[in-house]
Write a protein that binds this DNA or RNA. Sequence first.
DNA 1: CTGTTAGCGCTTTCAA
DNA 2: TTGAAAGCGCTAACAG
Lengths: 341, 341
Amino acid sequence: MHKPTIEDVAKLAKVSTATVSRVINKQGGVKSSKEQRILEVIEELAYIPNAVARSMVRKITNTIGVIIPDINNPFFPLVVSGIEQQARKKGYFTILCNTNESPEIEEELIQILLERSVDGLIITTANEYGHQLQPVIDRRIPVVAVDRQIRNYEVDTVLVGNMDGAYQATRHLILQGHKKIAIIRGPQNTTPGYERFVGYRRALEDYNIPLLDEYVLEGDFKEESGYLDTQKLHSLQDRPTAIFTANNLMTLGCLKALTKIGWVLGEEVSLIGFDDLDVAEFVNPQLTVVSRPMRQLGEAAFDLLYEKMTHQGEWTKRHYVLSPKIKIRQSCVLRPSKTME
Amino acid sequence: MHKPTIEDVAKLAKVSTATVSRVINKQGGVKSSKEQRILEVIEELAYIPNAVARSMVRKITNTIGVIIPDINNPFFPLVVSGIEQQARKKGYFTILCNTNESPEIEEELIQILLERSVDGLIITTANEYGHQLQPVIDRRIPVVAVDRQIRNYEVDTVLVGNMDGAYQATRHLILQGHKKIAIIRGPQNTTPGYERFVGYRRALEDYNIPLLDEYVLEGDFKEESGYLDTQKLHSLQDRPTAIFTANNLMTLGCLKALTKIGWVLGEEVSLIGFDDLDVAEFVNPQLTVVSRPMRQLGEAAFDLLYEKMTHQGEWTKRHYVLSPKIKIRQSCVLRPSKTME
DNA sequence: CTGTTAGCGCTTTCAA
DNA sequence: TTGAAAGCGCTAACAG
């Protein structure tokens, strides 16, 4: 048993490897009787061209690497779907890697993708300082950052308006009459974590509501932290009447905590979340959220990358900012409590 | 600008490429002063070994392909997490591909992975007949099927007890007093679709409940179909008092439909779903489900694959069947309706 | 311990 | 239209 090679095909078809290569790559200029014969032999041998060997001489792989921090956060698979779809259209193959929010794993993954000579990289980094990208930059491999920026390098970036969305969310709460508004924010060394907090702060400022430290809690964008922080808020002397959670998973954790400790949503406390989630429609009252166009995010990211990969010309840094949209349901206005029924 | 190669390193360090190779691959037997120098040069040049060239001579890539049908179904990312974790431990790199349930894309992806010379393949196929796997089998590349079987080839398989889980679910409904139990089943040409239906049927048989055609609807495991089928059930003259939905997404669709058409869960109709989902804890009453050990599924799959990749000896077909667990919440017993309060 | 050398499978001049 | 031949960057005998 041995994988058939181009040479096996050439021998059996009684032509040179060069001719077989021409056929495989549809370059034309081969007499059609010969082409016919070669195609038959390929079929017969079940020959599959070796992309490893090809990449070696061509020095391109038609492959892009995609690095995401959390495959179990439904946000990312949606973005990835958008990337994949566009990539497929252009004949690129996508290698998806998951860092699980670990900068170490991310570094390792980058190294591996570089070893495999990917033609481009789309990344939502676990470490925005970006030094792990040095080798990628050095090799002039096109990179696009999605959802989180890269601080120390000139990298094309696709984001949604985090500040904008957070501002809208907070303002919405304010306009419903809330004054005691807490935030469960994300890590402040991440773009989304920081910008969403800024949006929250600005809204408070604009409406002359003081920002209280005890209403600012910080999670890590995972469910558990939303759960814990909600409990902390509940244990406050002076509880907030509304909470803004800075991502989907923390919103979920918050909801679970509310149920657990009996802090009644829509009666004792309002909630608005950044990012939509399935659960939103099933809680009572339904949850108002800031929702983002995930697929478009992915599509835009690939399109940008594609330009860089093809027109080697452009080396200006570009920023795409897509707009979030607030989905108003009912969780932001407090009903009279049940005891009044 | 040109990527440094092993030769650049060798020249600058004044040694042969063979020696550099020894250092890179930690094979030992190199004088440590030389090794030191080489390491420094590697650092200086920011040299990264070219995995493409290496694979070419070694004929292994330390890479496995993972093909899943729907990256947006939370079930799969969880399985993938299990696979990745085990793979990382053993020094394998995972290439994740998404077919979006399309057999055509699957075939293409298999071809590409083969071209890239992956050392092994873990797949949840979109076409259980499995002819698309012929080239993989021909090349003696180890394959493990997860969650869905491959019909026409001897392939190691990791599944959960679909029949078992469905039987338990249906019996649970029966023991709550239900007699009119509908199923929204999956496609019958898929293992999970078929087996879960058999579990349902057996439970009815064992308890002498006739199986009615009008209570057997078929979806495609996507949300939309659960939604539509639920509406169909509701429009029946003689509505069922309980529904068993055969996967998470169809359960979600069913729940949305119930809300939409005002068919009251827990009062007018009971529901049990195959696979847990976030929403389960947030509907009222909370949803009883059959839950599966996703991470373990992935771990077991890689472990099996790893054995095949290393001990080339074994060529017996193995089946792992993990056990599902029923998570009893409250959605299966009907409360008196609100009007009686 | 170290260097020389022969490929791995393919593409791509170049010459015919 | 075709074939011969020179690599792509690396590893693995083999010889020293």
